[in-house]
C-alpha cells in the first residue's frame, strides 16, 4: 500500500574537490512510499531551489538501473539497503516514517568528489582503455555463426558483462579495490573465443593500469559482491587471478 512518510536526511555537501565537505540536515516531508530514492531527492531539491538554496548535486540518467550513473552511500551501504538494486531503483517503501537517512558520496582515492554526491569515475574508462576490448576494426568480421560459442560460456560471459560501471564495488571495499569491476570485463572476454586471443595481454595491462590509478588490492572481504547492484560474482576475480598467473608466468607478454 502507498503511504506517506516523513524523513530526516543527512546529506554530504561539498562544493568541489578542493573544498572541505560537511553533512547538512534536511527534512523530507510527505514522501510517497512509491517514489524512488532519486525522486525523493528531486522533491527535496525542488524545495531547496524555491528557497533560494543550491540543490544537492547527484549523478543520474536512465533511472532504470542500467546506465551506472547513479550511486551514493545510503546509511553506509552502497546504493542503499536492497540487494541487487541501484539507487535509482531503490524505492521509499523500504524506509519507515521517522527514519534518519545518511547520504554520502562514494569514497575512494581514485574517485575524487566533483560536487556533493557526484564523483569522478574516469579511472574506470582508463582501465577499459588499457585492454577491455577485442582488437577488431570495423568491417571484415566473419559471419557471426562461423565461430560457435558454448551456450554455457555465453551465459557466464553475459553474467559478467552486466556490470554497469557504477563504482559501488570500489566504494564498499575496505581497500577501495577495483578488482570486481576489472574482473567482470576480463572474464567476459576471456570466456568468449573472440576474446581469447588477447586474453593474456589484456589481463596484464588492465591490472597494471588498475594499480597505477591508485585502487587498492583485493583481500577477499567480499563486500564488493555483496553490494554490487548487478550481483557480479566474485568467481570472476578468481577467474581473472588464474588468468593473470598464467599470463604472468607463461605468456609472451609477461
Amino acid at each position: 500500500m502507498t503511504k506517506k512518510i516523513n524523513l530526516t536526511l543527512k546529506v554530504w555537501r561539498q562544493k568541489g574537490a578542493a573544498h572541505k565537505g560537511a553533512l547538512e540536515t534536511y527534512s523530507a516531508q510527505q514522501i510517497s512510499t512509491d517514489m524512488s530514492f532519486l525522486e525523493m531527492l528531486d522533491l527535496v531539491n525542488e524545495d531547496l531551489t524555491l528557497s533560494g538554496k543550491e540543490p544537492i548535486a547527484f549523478d543520474h540518467d536512465c533511472r532504470e538501473g542500467i546506465c551506472g550513473m547513479c550511486g551514493a552511500m545510503v546509511n553506509g551501504r552502497a546504493h542503499g539497503p536492497e540487494k541487487g538494486t541501484t539507487l535509482c531503483q531503490l524505492h521509499m517503501r523500504h524506509f519507515s516514517d521517522g527514519d534518519t537517512i545518511m547520504i554520502e558520496p562514494w569514497r575512494a582515492m581514485a574517485f575524487k568528489v566533483v560536487k556533493d554526491l557526484v564523483v569522478d569515475r574516469s579511472a574506470f574508462d582508463k582501465i577499459i582503455a588499457a585492454g577491455g576490448y577485442v582488437s577488431v576494426n570495423t568491417g571484415g568480421a566473419p559471419d557471426a555463426n562461423n565461430i560457435p560459442v558454448y551456450a554455457e560460456d555465453a551465459e557466464l560471459a553475459m553474467d559478467a558483462a552486466q556490470c554497469i560501471g557504477c563504482g559501488a564495488c570500489v566504494a564498499s571495499c575496505p581497500n577501495a579495490s577495483a578488482m570486481l569491476f576489472t574482473s567482470a570485463k576480463v572474464s567476459q572476454l576471456a570466456l568468449l573465443p573472440q576474446g581469447k586471443v588477447e586474453a593474456d595481454k589484456r589481463v596484464l595491462s588492465m591490472l597494471r593500469c588498475m594499480d597505477e590509478l591508485g585502487f587498492g588490492n583485493c583481500s577477499n572481504e567480499r563486500e564488493c559482491e555483496a553490494e554490487c547492484p548487478k550481483e557480479i560474482n566474485i568467481t570472476n576475480i578468481a577467474r581473472m587471478n588464474r588468468g593473470f598467473l598464467k599470463a604472468a608466468l607463461f605468456s609472451r607478454h609477461k
Binding site: 576490448y133 577485442v134 577488431v136 570495423t138 568491417g139 568480421a141 566473419p142 559471419d143 557471426a144 555463426n145 565461430i147 560457435p148 560459442v149 558454448y150 551456450a151 555465453a154 560471459a157 553475459m158 558483462a161 567476459q188 572476454l189 568468449l192 573472440q194 576474446g195
Partner: peptide
C-alpha cells in the same frame, strides 16, 4: 547482417542456442 558479425567479433555476448549459434 554486418552489424551482427561486427558485434559478435567484439565479444558481445549474444544469446546462443545449445549448438553454439546465435
Amino acid at each position: 547482417n554486418s552489424i551482427i558479425d561486427q558485434c559478435a567479433a567484439q565479444g558481445v555476448p549474444f544469446a546462443r542456442e545449445y549448438g553454439g549459434g546465435l
